[in-house]
Each structure stands twice: as C-alpha cells, then as structure tokens.
Simulated scan of single mutants.
Amino acid sequence: MATMNIQLNKQNVGEPWGFRLQGGQDFRQQLMIKKVQANSPCAGRLSPGDAVVGINNYNARELTHAQAQNLIRQSGNNLQLTVLRNQGSGLDRIESLKPKGPVKFSPWRQQ
C-alpha cells in the first residue's frame, strides 16, 4: 500500500468532483472511493478501492460518512485527499470482471 496526497481542482463550485464515497465510522467501514466518473476532475487521479485517510489535511479515519461529505463540500474548488492505494485491490479485480462489450443471451424456447 502506498500513501498518496492527491490535489484536485475544478472550475466552479457547482461542478461535481466525480467520485462516489463509501463507508465511514457510522458504517464501521474505512472511507473508500467506490466509483470514479470519466471526464471528471478526479478521473485518472483517484481509483476505486482507494482508502481515504485524509481530507484537506484533516484525519479522516474517524469521520462518519456525512462528516466526510461535508468536509469535501466545504473545500470549494480545491480538494486535497490523502489516500492509501493498494495495487490490485479487490474492487479493481471485481471491476475487471464486468463485461466490456454487448452481452448476448440465447432466448429460451418453449417446446
């Protein structure tokens, strides 16, 4: 696991950061990045499965989900996240199992 400080910037306050957060002390789970939206301020910077341990130099290990969301919302156009990145995390492996193209099914025939 590698600890990384990631600085994110966006053009205006109304623009979303483009990631989905999961977990928190109220869920008895580590805060983690669940999903990253393509073409967003965090695309290519954050990865699903990154554990969020800091938000704007604030220790995020004991935060509830709502507290973490509020810190992120209050950050304005500049957000610094400290994450633990595990290369080849479980979420990465699950994402790799999703079909990449159209899924074909054979229709069931009654006889």
Rank of each mutant, 00 (worst) to 15 (best):
A2W: 00
A2S: 12
T3D: 08
M4P: 00
N5G: 07
I6T: 00
I6F: 01
I6S: 00
I6H: 00
L8D: 01
K10W: 14
N12Q: 14
G14L: 11
W17K: 01
F19R: 05
R20V: 08
R20Y: 07
L21M: 12
L21E: 05
Q22E: 14
G23V: 09
G23Y: 10
G24L: 05
G24S: 05
D26A: 06
D26L: 04
D26W: 10
Q29P: 02
Q29E: 05
Q30K: 11
V36F: 01
A38K: 06
N39V: 00
S40A: 04
S40C: 03
C42M: 03
R45Q: 14
L46K: 00
V53W: 02
I55G: 13
I55L: 11
N57I: 15
E62H: 08
H65F: 11
A66W: 07
Q69S: 05
Q69K: 09
L71N: 05
I72L: 04
I72Q: 10
R73N: 13
S75C: 07
S75Q: 06
N77T: 15
N78D: 04
L81K: 05
L81N: 08
V83P: 04
L84W: 03
S89F: 00
S89M: 01
R93W: 08
I94S: 13
I94Q: 14
S96Y: 06
L97M: 14
L97N: 06
K98N: 05
K100P: 05
P102E: 06
F105E: 09
F105D: 07
S106P: 14
P107A: 04
W108C: 11
R109G: 03
